[in-house]
Design a binder for these strands. Structure first.
Lengths: 335, 335
DNA sequence: TAGTATGATGTAAGCGCTTTCATTTATAGC
DNA sequence: GCTATAAATGAAAGCGCTTACATCATACTA
């Protein structure tokens, strides 16, 4: 691989000049610039990004921590981030945190040791305090799907409360009055917020929430099935079910079907996230759209603007979810 | 951030010694080692990986090119790779190729300029010649889901032909004799191989393949729907359908249902890939398992063994697909 | 015409490590 | 106690860049 040395020699200029035309950050005469460009071309020169990083103290890489690399959710997010970063010539280094505190911290340490210029984090297990401390260090971070008041500017989040509200509201407007709620793990803020949204909608319609119709799962489809079993076992009537995410909704739907319940005739179900699978399950799932790809993109823009000085970019911190109507929820039967 | 210099000063030894204990690659006395370790601890020292890379000419990073970051398939693969690499202290740099030649080449260039120690590629549009040339340069590459005879050692692939064979065989054993085939884009080698497997199974059962019952899609679910429309429009009878992937199978199933066909009573369907969605669609899809996560893991091991000298690892180049029986295919009705 | 900006280019000092080679210190053999 | 040998450590030269700072033309100004 050719080095800057050979380029400078071939072009008959100094190292510094070659560096200048590469970064075009200082005035170089048209003539010289062309000589250098020609030499680069001729040698097939590619700057060594490692050396650039060491010398400039910027690695041009952004670290990303997601809970999992597989699964329907994070792919969209990564895709959004990568697209935006790549277009700006930055690259992404990825680690998985597996929703466990130790693993998340470990991943963050790993990314830091890799000299990332900034971190985009989707973390769940780590505490607010830890993140605040991290943000006060000299590693810039942006948080996806998490809102911490002290770090408001660094958070790209969804109004989960509104989502829970909208999901519930839809069913209420369709005439349902007996609703069950299948929550995510309540230690996760998104699960909690969605639940609160549900409660608000219920209250708004003058309905009191029956705690017996609440089940708490872990966002996996298997727990959706398990929770549905529990709910049915109680023998309490309900004509609609709000699930805190699509996967649990899918699990619940399966159990409902096994119990001879038709969806949506006997039971309306609404999910949350609008994963790909929402379009594949039968009947197609009515759900709340989570624009995670767009949010990833926005997190990348945050970094481009705040770290790489692309001032022109517009930022947006809080996203509003919208309802996506499909086939799994319908008006309550007239009789 | 503390540097190696400060550590050496605090420990009262030279730079070189500190470097030695970090890499523990040369004999350092127990005593000295402890002093150095203590100094590191005290300073919270973390080696600067950029500087390490520049000095050692190894970046400890492996570049990965996938077609897309989102979608159900690549996530599994990335997850497998990341897991394996991370455990070995290597990191992954990811780029997307979007199944287009220019974009794939661009991504490869990008990864090379990032000084990766090796590349793991899932490329579709780029030619064999290009890859052979690339492999003959000094960037080690490993190919996933692609077999090129001259690069056999660098290929981690699935026996797609066998998969196509198994899918078809299952239906034949269930008594079906009139089978339709929905292929992927024939310029992709996996699509072609699966199709060949289908033909082999048919021939083995003494059945001739009716070209009118072949439709070529593009691996997307929308094209699965479109192809199904075409097939049904011909008015030719068939009791079973082999789809070259799960997404097309899902699209086809939907159209079948819209036409009043019950799956599997009226029409048996088998897919290929065993994506997550195969478990979610209704009825659950009988399909061929594509162990893409495992293959990603293997590609990572290839790199660890060949590039990072972890000699102990066992490698495997060709994976055998297996049939996963679910509910979408059943024995042909007795009548 | 000397004096002074101003733009273009060169010089050289790092960035924080690894690694070769030289040097010092310990161990053993006699 | 003295040499031969091995083990531990240090000195210093890079790795390929960036970036003050210095230098040198050139073009204006008065």
């Amino acid at each position: 691989m050719a080095t800057i040395y050979q380029v400078s020699e071939l072009a008959g200029v100094s190292l510094a000049t070659v560096s200048r035309v590469m970064n075009n950050n200082a005035r170089v005469s048209e003539n010289t610039r062309n000589k250098v460009l020609a030499a680069m071309e001729q040698l097939g020169y590619r700057p060594n990004s490692i050396a650039q990083s060491l010398a400039s103290n910027r690695s041009n890489s952004v670290g990303i921590l997601v809970s999992e690399l597989h699964g329907p959710f994070y792919g969209e997010m990564l895709s959004g981030i990568e697209n935006e970063c790549r277009a700006a010539g930055k690259h992404v280094i990825i680690a998985a945190g597996h929703s466990e505190e130790a693993s998340e911290k470990d991943g963050i340490e790993f990314l830091i040791s890799r000299s990332c210029d900034a971190l985009i984090l989707h973390v769940e297990a780590v505490s607010d305090e830890y993140l605040i401390k991290l943000a006060n260090g000299n590693m810039p971070i942006v948080l996806i799907n998490r809102f911490i008041p002290q770090l408001a500017d660094n958070c790209i989040s969804l109004d989960n409360e509104l989502g829970g509200y909208l999901a519930t509201k839809q069913l209420l407007q369709q005439g349902h009055t007996q609703l069950a709620y299948m929550a995510g793990p309540m230690w996760k803020s998104d699960a909690k917020d969605r639940y609160h949204g549900h409660l608000r909608a219920m209250a708004e319609h003058g309905l009191s929430f029956n705690p017996a119709l609440l089940a708490e799962g872990d966002f996996q489809d298997s727990s959706g099935s398990a929770c549905m079993q529990q709910l049915l076992a109680k023998g309490l009537p309900f004509s609609a079910l709000v699930c805190a995410n699509d996967e649990m909704a899918a699990g619940a739907m399966e159990v409902a079907r096994a119990h001879g319940l038709n969806v949506p005739q006997d039971l309306s179900i609404v999910g949350f996230d609008n994963l790909i699978l929402a379009r594949y399950i039968y009947p197609k799932l009515t759900t709340i759209d989570y624009p995670i790809g767009e949010m990833g993109r926005m997190a990348a823009r945050w970094v481009l603007k705040n770290i790489y000085q692309q001032q022109a970019l517009q930022l947006k911190n809080i996203f509003q979810p919208v309802l996506v109507c499909r086939d799994s929820a319908s008006a309550i039967a007239a009789g």
